[in-house]
Structure formats: C-alpha cells, structure tokens
Write a protein that binds this DNA or RNA. Structure first.
Length: 922
RNA sequence: GCGGAGGUUGCCGAGCUAGGUUAAAGGCGACAGACUCAAGAUCUGUUUCUGUAGGGAUCCGCCGGUUCAAAUCCGGCCCUCCGCACCA
C-alpha cells in the first residue's frame, strides 16, 4: 500500500480521537502500558517489538469489546543526555558521529543537521527532538496510542508526582542514608558514570572491595590491600615497590605507610586522614611487621611485582597460593611457601601445576601469570578448604573462611575496607578514575523484610507471560537489597528532603503509569495552584479525605474529584509489556513501589516479558553498529509489514533474529493479501451450498484467533487469522468457490480481526468496502460454531487425507493415473471391522473370517465412528479431483471376496492408468 | 560460583507442563512441475532412508531407567546462552 494512504488513515484516526477513551460504564476497561522510551536517539527495530506487541494486544482487546487505554510518555531522567550534550560541546568526534547518524535518519539537509547538533549542546533539545520524532514514528506504525495523555519525566508535573512518591517511601521508612563507594574523578571533582569512562560501554568498570590488612610496625604500620584475606595463615612476608614513593599518614590517631598513589585513593575513602611525611622503601624495609591473627613477624622485601598504583602499594605475600608471590619469591631462598588451602582430589589448581601448565618461567611472564591467577583464585575460592594450619578457621570452606576472617579482622580493628576499580580506567578527558566514598548516599532499602513480603504477595497475584518468569521474579525480589536512588548530577527530580540530590532514573519511573490516568487534570490543577501539592495527590491517588482540598477552592476540588474518578476507573494496569533486560530492575521496582505505596487493588495485574531482537547473532545496540532503524524499516516495507513480521516471526518471549530477506517474504505475503482484497467482491446476497466449507472454516479460524489472543498467544493467533485463512481462501477455489467470492463471504469479520495486526490494510479495505466507521473500533463477534460447521470442516480433512493417500500411491507405484476409483466401506464391512476391533471374533460369520488379518493390519486407520464417510467424500468430490487433476469416482462397495477391502475411515483406492515404464495396470 | 533458559530432521523454529493421533507444525533454503520468449514473482508438489499401491526402517545432545508405548516422564553426563545491580 502506498505511503500516502497510510498517512491519510493515520490522520483520520487522529482526527476522530478513537484511541482516546473516556470513562465507560458499559464496557470493561483495559489499561495496557509499555515502559516509556529514553529519548537520547532514534529507535531501532528492537524497540519497536515491544510497542508493536502491546499495540496488537490493545487492538485485539478493543475489538473484542474492552474500553482500552494505551498511553505513552517519554523518559529523560538520568545522566546520559547530560553526558552526551557535554561531549558534543567538548567536540567529541565519536558522539558527534553517532548523533549525526541519528538525525540523518530523519533529515537530509546538511545545514539543518549542523544546526541541530549545535542545539544538542543543551540536553533538553536532544530530548525534545527525539521525543517529537519518536511520537511521529509511533503514529506512523499504526499504534493505537492515546497521545493526549503524553508527558515527559522532566515535566514539572511529573516532578511533583515523583516528589510525592519519594515522600511516601520516606514516610514508610524505606529510604536510608549511608556511605557508599562510587567511581570518581579527582580532576573533575565528580562522580563518573559508564558514559564518562573511556570504553566504559564495552569494557565495564566495577568496584572491587579489598581488605586492607594492617601489619603493625614499630614506627608505623603497613596496610596491604588484598582480595584474599583468607590466606593470612600462609603469609610469609610483605612486598613493596622499589621505585614508588611512599608516604606516612595519620588515621584514627595511628600512623600508617602506603604508596603515595595509594594514599591518594585513601584520601577519598577514609574520613579524617592526614598526610604526615614522605618515606621510602629503604626506610620501610628496616622494620619487621606483625601480622594480625597469626601474630607472625614479617620481613618486607622490594619487588617489581608490586604495582604502586594498585591498592596501597603494599602486598602481602602468599607464595603457596598466589602466582605473583611465588614467582617473586624465587629470588629469595629464605621464603618458603606455606600451603593453607587444600583442594579436592584430582584438582590441578595449585601454584606449581599452573606454573608448568601456563609455562611460567619468571615474574616477567605477566600475561600468563595473570591468566593462571584467575584460574587459581576461582578454583580455590569455590572448591577449596582450609587445612589444619588455619587455627580456628581450619576445616572451613574458603568462602566461609574469607567471611570469618574479614569480620574478625574488622572487629579487632586490624583491617579497613579499601576500594579499587576492577581495571585501570580513565575518563574520556584522560583523568584517572578512582573509587571514592560518597558520604550520605541515599538508598531505597529493598532489603526491608516487610516490604519483600508484600512484594512476594504481589508476584503471586500477578499473571506472568510467560509463566515461568514468576519464579524468577520471586528470586529477584529476594535478591534485591539497598539501592542508591539519587545522584549528584543528571536530569531528574530533586530529592524533596535533600535537594542536593537528584533522583536516579530507574527509581523515578516505577509507579508513573498511574499518571496516565490523571495527567491532564494534574496539569489543570497546576495551572491554578502553581504546583501539585502532596495533599492533592493524596486525595486523588490514595483516596484521602476531601477536606484536604478545601484550602484550594472549589475549582481545584472539582478537577481533583474528576481525576480521582479517572484513576479509580483505569487503575490498576492490566498488562505491562516490556523486554527482558528490564526484568530484574525496572519490573522488580515497578512491583515493589506499587506494593509500598498503593493498596492491593491498584497492584499490577499482569506482566508480559519479551525476548530481545537480535541481528546477526548480537543484541541490537547503537554501539554495536548493527542497529536497524525502526523508522527506515517501516518506511521501506510499510508499517503493516513490519507489524506482521513482529507478530508472526517468533514467539514474543523468545529472541527474534532480524533477517531482511524474511521481511521480503512477509512483504510478498502481504502483497498477495492486498491483491486478493483488491479483487474481492461484496458479500453475496444468497449462500450456495458450496460456500459452506469456507464460511465454516473461517468461523473455526476466527474462534481460534479470539481464544489465542485472549491468552496473548500472538504468533499462533496471527497464523490462524492471516496465514490459515489466506490458504483457505485459495483452497476454496477448488471446492468450487472463486476466491473473490470466498473473500466476500468473510470479509467484514476478517478485516476487523486483522486490524490488530495490519491496521492500515484493514482500514483501507474497510473503507473500500463501504463499511461504516473504522475497522479498528468495530466489534468482532465471537462466531457461533454449529455442528454443521465442525462436520463440514472435518469432511474436508477426510478429503485431504484421501488426497494424500492417492498421491502416495501414485508416487510409490510410479503410475501415470487416468482416473481414480474410491470405494468406501459398506455396512457389511463396518460390521466386520467393529467385531474385529472389539475382539468379538466368534461373532464374525465364518465366511468372512479370512478378512481378520487384513483388518488387523489396517487397524490404526480404522475409524468406527465415521458414519457418513460416503457423504463426506462425495461432497468434496470436485475438490478431490481438481486437486489431483484427474477424475475421481466415489462409491460404496460390498465385501470383495479374495481382494483388498475398504474399511471405515480407510476407503479403498484404485488408480487406473499407465505405468510410467509402460506397463498397463488395471 | 549463584540464579535462570535451552540443546529437535540443511538452517530458523513449534511440539515437549496433560507420553501414544509425530517422520515430527510453520517459515527459509533446495529440488521438480505449471505459468513465461526468458528471468523474477506466483502457484502445485517433493525435501531421513527405502519400497513398482496408501507400506517398512531409522530418528529429536549423549548414556541409562520407568512404560505395552518417550522428542515428551526419571537419573547421570556433555555443551550453549542469559542475568548477577546503580546502567538506561
């Protein structure tokens, strides 16, 4: 179909407002939502899947009699938009290129693109531009979205609402404040996110928690940061770097020495820490240091395995269980490795074995040592056991021992936590990324017992599609713990009780679907009051007392009452559709926040989780360079074809491989559907007997479609209503009904059903057929299936089975058929067959007993219930012979002594014709 | 490691929660035929092996078990994929 036709239809939908539902007492409501898109770029075909699936469901509910609301908004909260703007401003080439591509999806004019790029230095402009474009794209994809309720998370009214949300959480005691490690850039004086770090998106930087064990010395103590404190019983000595500078500092009234790099980090992690003086490796090695727990006195050696930049520049040495330490100890004969961990029999994970396995000769084989270290750490951690040398930790698993030793060390004041980045990282402006302790970080405390119980209750009551994910959600809720919920930068709402902080982007978008139900009223109130105050929201959303509103005057009161009615009608969300990456975060928060704030009647009803769209095996992502633009795809193939591909390609919950050539085949099917519609006739005035099969079959398909859509089994529903019906129409031709007539017979209901999937074509042919209104809002009637309908369709199945048999014989026997004679079992045969099947051999007349082996052989084909076989096949005689292409005769026969016989459900086929090799057969 | 999903006929992908109706849906590809001057598209059929009458044999990661009967249930093994957080 032409672009302009689709555009015209879109316009008509918009003008008529058919997707902007009002409250209705007569029909059941259905609120369906999808997480709003983050507006930092154009969307790809993967994004479109979620919105398309939701739209198909929305439309199917609408035509089956529900009052449907499918709203949409835009997300702008968080750091990326700000980061992109900043980088554009700084002239970052990579990001410029990305945005150049994003814009050129829509705009060709070079100058205009340049102008926009300049504008994008303000993040709000990026958000506005793409929000605008995305909503246009969505309109052109035929989504039945109510755009009058649209908003963005940066809007003031949204912020009023989020403030309210956080005040509620605070009142419930679900928000706590603590110190917390974050990635930080000293030069920028700022927290850094993934977007700020060089290669941060491809090579993630995590925060590792080291245990900084304190080794007490005479003048000062050393702090050695380690990931493996459980090996403390195997410590033989300490290492420091020969080249690095060391400093002495005071912390908690005591003196310590670490590398100056290390001190630099600790400054951001420890409170009240003060540098006292410089020192040197030489000075440090003059003393011995006492190990906690074991009390051993340890010597310090210089070694080049120490990277002064990692940890504290002081390393404790466990040559029995660490590749680096072992390699370094080779130069010091007096160091004897001590084994403190034993491995299960058969394990090859030991320092010595890995040394030979990885062919490590000296401390110079850095890469091999790194690799071997990974193996050793992993194996020992998961399968190792502490041996008898470990005091009270002997016999424990390595895991338990690590925990026990850490808590013992911390209790005695013999260790501090030291945080380190998981790899060396730099910001895009080349500043070093370190870990700093953010003091007073705000958290949402998901670990609350009571809250989790509510969460579990909600999960129990929610219907999950697919069902298997329900268990996952229970697990996810158990696993949730405290989560930082505010940051120092980014777009978003200020924390109402601490405005230095901006609410983080996943925490501000949990219960927002309720806003869709009242957004316009809230805006109207805001016009009057200047802000939507907390008590107004209490009244509207939590059904609090009307007295709260007296002070705002009658007008506000009236609007609020209306808003509350809207909310009570539409909420809760009946179905939320989202992609699987949202599962353990957004969806879990969505459930939890509803539980915390709303009474049970407003908790979510059901969730649908979709698999990602992948392209050439990889997850589609802007950074991967395999993003297929949603806009371009829809323009190139038409919105309908895109929708058809999404609906029919695979089960929504599984991953969908995006293949261009398959899109072509969807397109061809779609084209042939259009051609069929173009040539179809109007509904005939009078039915003919041969019309019965196509009309009956359609009823069955339609009923199946309705049932499947009810269960959101979109794929099979599409197969039934699109592919199967299409094939039926073609077959109808052979049953004696021309295709044009066949379509005419079923057109109206077919178009209504199809409006879920290919709304443009449906609407177009709806108009051409002069039906009234829109196919999108017409009512689909559940067909009444009569006995006649099931009978005539099962007759056709019998005919098809017969055709298959005839073909098999022709192929096996290598015959060139002239005509086919089909003989259906008569009364006599039916009686004999029944006796055999029912094991009443004695009752069979002796003269027919010779038939028993013959019947036994065809036993599995015999159908005693099949009483009207002759009528069935007779009525499809034309169909059979036109399909085979040869004349077919059908009659009933008596027992044929001494030859093969027909049995009920197993007619006898006799093919007359010539052997392909020239023999004449009878 | 923890938690989850899965390994099906050339490929993709149903079926496997209720075992037989499954040589195993559907799509893609391949092959043959029809149409066409021809190609493409479309339509028809075939697509594990085998058989001169609708039949037979083998088959659903590997091994074993339950059963009259298993792709489907049970046990073990091998392999693949996803999530593990502050990132929207």
């Amino acid at each position: 179909m032409e672009d302009s036709v689709e555009e015209k239809i879109t316009e008509k939908w918009n003008e008529s407002g058919i997707f902007e539902p009002a409250l209705s007492k007569s029909s059941k409501k259905f609120l369906i939502t999808v997480p709003y898109p983050y507006v930092n770029g154009s969307l790809h075909v993967g994004h479109g899947k979620t919105y398309t699936v939701a739209d198909i469901i929305a439309r199917s509910r609408r035509i089956t009699g529900y009052n449907v609301l499918y709203p949409m908004a835009f997300h702008q909260s968080g750091t990326p938009l700000v980061a992109y703007s900043r980088r554009l401003k700084a002239g970052d080439k990579a990001i410029r290129k990305t945005y150049y591509e994003h814009i050129s999806t829509y705009i060709n004019d070079e100058k205009e693109i340049e102008r926009l790029l300049k504008e994008f230095e303000d993040p709000e402009n990026i958000a506005d531009f793409f929000a605008n474009r995305i909503s246009k794209d969505f309109m052109r994809l035929g989504y039945s979205i109510d755009w009058t309720r649209s908003f963005a998370s940066g809007n003031m009214v949204y912020q009023d609402f989020v403030e309210w949300q956080f005040n509620k959480l605070m009142e419930e005691g679900l928000i706590v404040q603590k110190d917390y490690p974050i990635l930080y850039s000293q030069e920028d004086g700022n927290a850094v996110g993934e977007d700020d770090i060089k290669d941060g998106d491809t090579d993630k930087v995590a925060i590792d928690e080291y245990t900084g064990i304190i080794f007490k010395g005479q003048e000062f103590s050393l702090i050695a940061a380690t990931l493996r404190p459980e090996t403390i019983f195997g410590v033989t000595n300490l290492w420091i770097s020969a080249e690095a500078n060391y400093v002495i500092f005071r912390y908690n009234g005591k003196k310590y020495a670490v590398s100056s790099f290390g001190f630099n980090k600790l400054k951001f992690q420890l409170k009240e820490i003060e540098k006292l003086s410089e020192t040197s490796a030489e000075e440090i090695i003059q003393y011995e240091y006492k190990s906690p727990i074991t009390g051993n006195m340890l010597k310090v050696y210089k070694s080049d395995i120490v990277d002064p930049d990692i940890g504290t520049g002081v390393v404790f040495s466990v040559p029995g269980h660490a590749m680096w330490d072992y390699a370094a100890s080779l130069r010091h004969k007096e160091i004897k490795p001590v084994k403190v961990i034993e491995m299960p029999a058969g394990s090859t994970a030991s320092v010595e074995q890995l040394l030979s396995e990885f062919k490590i000769k000296s401390a110079g084989d850095r890469v091999a040592i790194e690799e071997a270290t990974k193996v050793l750490y992993r194996e020992e951690y998961y399968s190792g056991k502490m041996n008898a040398l470990n005091g009270k930790f002997s016999g424990m698993s390595v895991r338990d021992a690590r925990e026990g030793i850490i808590s013992e060390l911390e209790k005695e004041g013999d260790a501090i936590k030291v945080y380190e980045t998981s790899r060396k990282a730099f910001t895009r402006s080349e500043a070093k990324v370190i870990v700093a302790i953010m003091s007073g970080q705000w958290f949402i405390d998901y670990s609350s017992r009571k809250w989790k119980e509510l969460g579990h209750r909600a999960v129990d009551s929610i219907k999950f599609y697919p069902d298997t994910l329900k268990k996952n959600m229970h697990d996810t809720i158990d696993w949730l713990k405290e989560r930082p919920c505010a940051r120092r930068r980014g777009i978003g709402t200020k924390l109402p009780f601490d405005p230095e902080w901006t609410i983080e982007s996943l925490s501000d978008s949990t219960i927002y679907p309720i806003l869709y139900t009242v957004i316009n009223e809230l805006r109207a109130i805001r016009e009057i009051t200047g802000k939507v105050n907390q008590d107004i929201l209490d009244f509207i959303l939590l059904d609090k007392d009307l007295d709260l509103l007296r002070k705002y005057g009658k007008k506000v009161e009236d609007i609020a009452i209306k808003a509350r009615a809207n909310k009570s009608y539409w909420y809760p969300v009946d179905l939320r559709v989202t992609a699987t990456p949202h599962f353990s975060n957004h969806l879990a928060f969505y459930i939890m926040h509803h539980c915390a704030i709303f009474p049970e009647k407003y908790w979510p009803k059901s969730l649908m989780i979709l698999g990602l769209v992948v392209s050439s095996g990889a997850k589609i992502g802007k950074s991967k360079g395999n993003a297929v633009s949603l806009y371009n795809t829809a323009r190139e193939y038409s919105a309908d074809v895109y929708r058809l591909a999404i609906a029919a390609a695979a089960d929504p919950s599984s991953e969908l491989e995006w293949a261009e050539d398959e899109l072509d085949s969807f397109n061809r099917k779609y084209q042939s559907f259009c051609a069929l519609m173009d040539s179809s006739s109007a509904k005939p005035e009078k039915l003919k007997p041969e019309d019965r099969w196509i009309t009956s079959s359609f009823k069955l398909r339609l009923a199946r479609f309705i049932d499947l859509m009810e269960k959101y089994d979109i794929r099979n529903a599409v197969v039934s209503i699109f592919y199967d019906v299409l094939n039926d129409v073609k077959e109808a031709e052979r049953t004696g009904v021309p295709q044009a007539r066949a379509v005419g017979l079923i057109k109206k209901q077919w178009l209504i059903a199809l409006s879920c999937i290919i709304p443009y074509a449906s609407e177009h042919y709806w108009n051409l057929s002069s039906f009234k209104g829109f196919s999108s809002t017409a009512k689909l009637e559940r067909p009444v299936i009569s006995e006649e309908d099931t009978r005539v369709t099962s007759w056709k199945n019998e005919a098809d089975k017969l055709i298959g048999d005839i073909r098999a014989i022709i192929a096996a026997a290598q015959v060139e058929p002239e005509s086919i004679e089909v003989t259906v079992a008569g009364v006599e045969q039916a009686k004999i067959a029944e006796l055999v099947i029912k094991r009443k051999m004695a009752e069979i007349e002796p003269k027919y007993r010779y038939l028993i082996p013959q019947i036994e052989k065809s036993r599995k084909f015999i159908d005693l219930e099949n009483k009207d076989e002759l009528v069935a096949l007779e009525s499809f005689k034309e169909y059979i012979s036109s399909t085979i292409g040869k004349p077919v005769t059908i009659n009933t026969g008596d027992v044929n002594p001494g030859a093969k016989n027909a049995w009920p459900g197993r007619p006898l086929i006799n093919i007359k014709g010539e052997k392909k090799r020239g023999f004449k057969v009878q």
